[in-house]
Each structure stands twice: as structure tokens, then as C-alpha cells.
Design a protein around this nucleic acid. Sequence first.
RNA 1: GGCCCCAUCGUCUAAUGGUUAGGACAUCAGGUUUUCAUCCUGGUAACGGGGGUUCAAUUCCCCCUGGGGUCACCA
Length: 473
Amino acid sequence: MNIKTRLAPSPTGYLHIGSLRTALYNYFFAKKNHGTFLLRIEDTDRTRYVEGSVEALLKTLKQMHLSWDEGPYVQSERLPIYQEHAQMLLEKGSAYYCFCTPERLKELRERQQQVKQSTKYDRHCLSLSTDEIQKRLAAGESHVIRLKIPDGITTFEDAIRGSITINNEEIDDQVLMKSDGFPTYHLAVVVDDHLMGITHIIRAEEWISSVPKHVHLYQSFGWDLPVFAHLPLVLNPDKSKLSKRQGDVAVEDYLAKGYLPEALINYVALLGFNPTADREIYKMDELIELFDLSKVNKSGAVFDVQKLRWMNGQYLRAMDLDALVSASKNFLTNDEVVTDEMLKKILTVEVERLEVLSEVSDRVRPYLSISDYDASILVWKKSTREDAQAQLQGLSGLVGSFSPSVFENVSLIEHAIKQYIESKSLQNGNVLWPLRVALSGSEQSASPFQLAWVLGKDETLSRLTIALNKLSA
RNA sequence: GGCCCCAUCGUCUAAUGGUUAGGACAUCAGGUUUUCAUCCUGGUAACGGGGGUUCAAUUCCCCCUGGGGUCACCA
């Protein structure tokens, strides 16, 4: 049997982190089994359609390296198929016309809530005679088609949770075809999954409660059931379903902040699934190879941005330097003009203190121009202003005497300066601290040797002069 | 509220009918470093409660509690 999974988003905006996880598991499962990963756009609700969201969705999926083998199918282009299938159900007696107005339905619900009854359709239209139905249909009266849920109990198997049973009394006579001629999710999803040959439905847990309706649909049509696998939810820190309000939920947001697709995939994939537990960095290929539906957790997982940041840092440090350079460029502002060569040097020394690419801008700026700083920070805590001045003076002479070849790499610079310190019997801190501040304008920076290497001889000397002027002012 | 699902450190998780209950993030302490970060070492920290079953339960069963999801002509 050819394994076939699908991702079926609705075009209501962005790609949710939870949807990414669903997409990933569907993708992993299909690839691992040499099957097919299909994409289907579920746009049967015209009122919620967001212009441009399909394009955005496809773009994000591509950015995340999730390529589909089939589709994208678009449900709004398949209306006749659903209408035809709704007719089949009508003929089989598994569905019926309903002419109730939204107002009546609303009142009904309110009445039921007041009496603390479960809110479900009262089958008011089930008893309509064929004649009356034909008459009202002919008169063009607004109507829907409802699924007729039989008495009894429904049990289905979930690949992650095992057997789930529900009393049919709990199930509502779900609307299948809306009055606008569009199908509801429930009809469309069942018809499409069957017609498209989906073998495994892997989706979020929030769908569990509607599975019984789908089971009745499959049974009414006389179709075999696919395998259901309901994923635990991705949660906010307070354990509720991951939502806006409590942080970013769109994959696009994370991409824009400079998280790498690989890191996002790695982190999100591990929310609810762990291949071995003795390791946390996995490439896509490994995740596919190791993925196992039966090892997916049952309980929800809190999305921890802190750990994502850490993981992104790991990916940044493991990244090829040229790739890092080109990825970083997108995060520089217009007035931060750097040559590739310069950016490469900067990133070589700054990558270890980088967690997300959006921080690149702040890291690059001090190398391009030194910002104003207070002269007092040039003085090492165990030293004096006079000493700092003397050391910078000495360093200025020393660096001025360096041949260009010294600037070819960091260790030559380091060696030369340390030798100087030793030969003069000076203290590291007294010399190196003022040097760092002079070159970076900050108390926190890369090592002074790295700074000098990135800046080059001329700029290094120039910044030493600026520092000396500050001290003598 | 009805129904459904779930329950190991703060968080993501591993393992097991008999273990000092393991790893990672975070956190704390120490080391490296002239600083921050990186890196290294170490520490704190978990089986929700009550009944069973069993020689033995974190593990299997039941109840409770807690958390979540769902109750639309939305998906």
C-alpha cells in the first residue's frame, strides 16, 4: 500500500507553529515510508478567507524545505464533487434537508443551555415529508444538508491514543452542505481524503471530537477508514493552546527574527517526539529516518522560545561561514554598509555570541563606526587613568610598528601584543582592557586581538588616538 | 457544565514491574577569559493523591484531583 499523508491548511493567514509541527510529522511519515505528501487548501469558508494567504503559505512551506508531492488541491474548486456526494448521502437516507433559520438555531441553543442540556440540533426538519421538502426546495428556500447520526456508540482507533469510544447521543447532526452551496469541513475532508487516497490522517488533537462524525460519513459512503493519528497540542507557557497574545505563533515571525529554518524544524519536531533522548540536534534526514508515529507523545508540549534560541545559536555556530554571511545580510539596515570580506571577519568573531540573526545588526555596527563612550570606562578596575593613558600610548607605538602581515590573523596580533606585555613586565588587564574599550567603545566585546584583526591597522590606530584624546581631555 | 483526551525536574523529554529515575534548555556554583559570550566541571530540581494487583509499583487497573480540547451553516 502506498502511504499518503496530507497537510490541509485553511487560508486564514499565516503558518502557525502548531501547523508546522503537523506538517513536519506528515512529511516525515510520508518520506520515511517512501509515500506521498499531499497539500490541500481547505477554503470552504468564504467569510474567513484572507487575501494572499495561500501564496504566503506556499512560500513559507518552501522556506521550511517542505515540498509536497501532490497538489495543492483547492477545495473551492471542487464544489460539484461535494454536492454530488451530499446527494448520495441524501439518497442513502444518511443525510437530510434542513430549512431551519440561523435565528431558530440560536434560540434552540440558548434554550438548551438554560436547561443545561447539551446543545445539538433537535431534528426539527427530519420529519418533513418528501412533498414539503420538494415544495420548499422549488420555492428556493434557504437550506442546508445535515448528517443523520444513527443511535448507538462509535469506537475508532487512534494510532497515538489507542481506542476512543463515544456515545452517539453526544454527536450532533452536523451540517454537511451550507446554504451557500459550500460544504463544511466535515464533508469536504472526508470526501477528499478518500478520493485522494489518504492513508494516514495526522492532525492536531483538537480534531478528535469530530472523528465520530467522520466515521459515520465513511460508513455511510461504504468507504474504508484511514488511520487516524491525533497529535498533542503545542502550548503556551500557561498550558493553553498556543496562541497570539502570548508571543509569536507564526513561522513567518520566527523567520523574520532570524531563526534558521533548520533550527525551527529541529526544535518543533522535538515537541512531542524524541528519537533517542541522548541528543537534541537532528538534521531533517535524520528526523525522517527516526520518525515513528507510535513514539509520538500523548500530552501537550509547551513551546519554549528560550530553548529555541539556544538551538538556533547552535545552528548558527555550526553554519558554513559563507552561508552565514549571506543569511546575515538580510538583517543589516541600509546604513550598515559592509563588504563581504569585512562581514565575514566580523561574523567569524561574533558568531559565538549570536543566537538569532536579527542581532547581527547590533554586532556589526561597532566595527563600522565607533560610538561615543565615556572616557572613564577605558580605565581597568585595578588601574588608574594615568596608567591607561600610558598603556594606550605604548600600544599605539607598538601597533604602528606592526608590519601588514601581522594583521593577517588573530594569533599573530595576539602573540605580538602578549610578547610586548611580557617584555615590559606589564599586567594583562592594564593593557588589554583599555585596548578593548578603545577598539570597541564598549565594556563587552570580542577579544582586543580579534577587534584589531577585524578593524585592520589604520582603524585600530585611529581608534587608539580617539581614546587618547578622550583621556587627555 | 456535558463529552473526549492527557498527567516524570520550572520547560522539552528518556527509561523501567526491582535504577543512585538519565539527557537537554533554564537556573545556581566553580574553572577558562582582561570583559560579555562561547567552552569545560559540578550542583539544585520530577514520578499529582488515594486505593488495588503483585514478593515488588513511577511503570498495570480503578477512583479522585489537576490540566487541556471540544461542544457553529469556522476550520
